[in-house]
C-alpha cells in the first residue's frame, strides 16, 4: 500500500486516543471529517495494478479472468457473487474465483496463492484484499443481486442459513447469537441483524471496508473468519463451503440493497 498522507495518520492517532472512552459517535465524526477520503482509495488503485500485472509461470495478467459477466468484465461483477460457475461446477465467492484465475490463467501455485489471504495487524494488505477492494469499487452504487437461478446456488443459501444458526464451541455461539436481533450492540459496537434485509444489505454492501483501528482494508472473508475466532471456533478457511454458504445467505438477504463499499469502519 502507498503511504497515506499525514492528515490520515494524525486522524488515526487522534481516533485511537478518543475511542478509549467514546461511543460510535467518534467514528461518525471521523467519517464526516474524511468525506470521500477513505484510505481504501490507495488499496483500490493497488488492486487494479495487481489485475493488470503479468504474474506466474504463464506471465499473464488477470484480464482474461471471467468473474461471471464474461472474460475481463469487472464493472458490476462483485454484486452477482456468490454464484455458480460452469467451468468449476461450483458456487464460488469472489475470493475463491480470484484464486481460481490465478492458478488456471497465471499458472500460480495454489498453496502459495492461498497461504496468507488476509493480512495480519501491522502488515501491508495482501493481493487478494487489494483485488477484492478494487472489484468492490467497480460495483459501487450497483444493486446487490447474487445469482440464485442455479439449484446449487439455492442449496448454498439453505446451507448458509443452517450454518448461521449452528451453535457450537465452549460458549455455544452461532452467528445468530449476535446477528438475529435488531438494535442490539456488543459493548459499544452496533450489531446488524443479518436475518433482515436492512441489516444484511447494510453489512454486505459496506464490505470490504477500511478498518480504522487496524489501518487495513478487510474483506467479508476476513470478517467471517474473525467472527468465528470470537465464537471460539476453529479457523474458517477462505473459499471453503461454509464461508461461501454464509456469504450466500448474507448476499441473498441483502439483495436489492446498494453496494457502497469500500466502507470505513471502526
Amino acid at each position: 500500500m502507498k503511504k497515506p498522507n499525514l492528515e490520515v495518520a494524525l486522524l488515526a492517532a487522534w481516533l485511537c486516543a478518543a475511542t478509549l472512552a467514546a461511543d460510535d459517535g467518534v467514528f461518525d465524526q471521523y467519517r464526516d471529517l474524511m468525506g470521500d477520503e477513505n484510505p481504501a482509495v490507495f488499496v483500490i488503485d493497488e488492486g487494479e495494478e495487481f489485475w493488470l500485472t503479468a504474474q506466474g509461470p504463464n506471465a499473464v495478467t488477470l484480464e482474461s479472468c471471467d468473474l461471471g459477466l464474461g472474460p475481463g468484465v469487472t464493472a458490476g461483477a462483485y454484486v452477482r457473487f456468490p454464484r455458480h460457475f460452469a467451468d468449476t461446477n461450483a458456487v464460488m465467492d469472489l475470493e475463491s474465483r480470484l484464486v481460481y484465475c490465478m492458478t488456471t490463467i497465471q499458472g500460480r501455485d495454489l498453496e502459495s496463492v492461498t497461504a496468507k489471504p488476509y493480512s495480519l495487524r501491522g502488515d501491508f494488505g495482501t493481493e487478494i484484499e487489494a483485488l477484492v477492494t478494487w472489484l468492490a469499487a467497480e460495483s459501487e452504487g450497483a444493486t446487490i443481486a447474487p445469482e440464485q437461478a442455479h439449484a446449487t446456488e439455492r442449496a448454498m443459501y439453505a446451507l448458509g442459513k443452517d450454518i448461521f444458526f449452528y451453535r457450537a464451541g465452549p460458549h455455544d455461539f452461532s452467528c445468530a447469537t449476535c446477528h438475529e436481533q435488531s438494535d442490539k450492540r456488543i459493548r459499544l459496537q452496533a450489531l446488524p441483524d443479518l436475518t433482515s434485509h436492512t441489516g444484511a444489505a447494510g453489512s454486505w454492501g459496506s464490505w470490504p471496508a477500511y478498518r480504522i483501528s487496524q489501518g487495513l482494508v478487510r474483506t467479508m472473508g476476513w470478517r467471517l473468519r474473525d467472527c468465528f475466532r470470537q465464537q471460539r471456533w476453529p479457523e474458517l478457511q477462505m473459499g471453503s463451503e461454509a464461508s461461501i454458504a454464509l456469504q450466500t445467505y448474507m448476499a441473498v438477504n441483502a439483495a436489492g440493497g446498494t453496494m457502497t463499499a469500500p466502507g470505513l469502519k471502526r
Binding site: 446451507l159 479457523e235 461454509a242
Partner: peptide
C-alpha cells in the same frame, strides 16, 4: 461441510 471448512 464444517469439517472441510475449518482448521484447528
Amino acid at each position: 461441510v464444517l469439517q472441510n471448512s475449518f482448521v484447528a
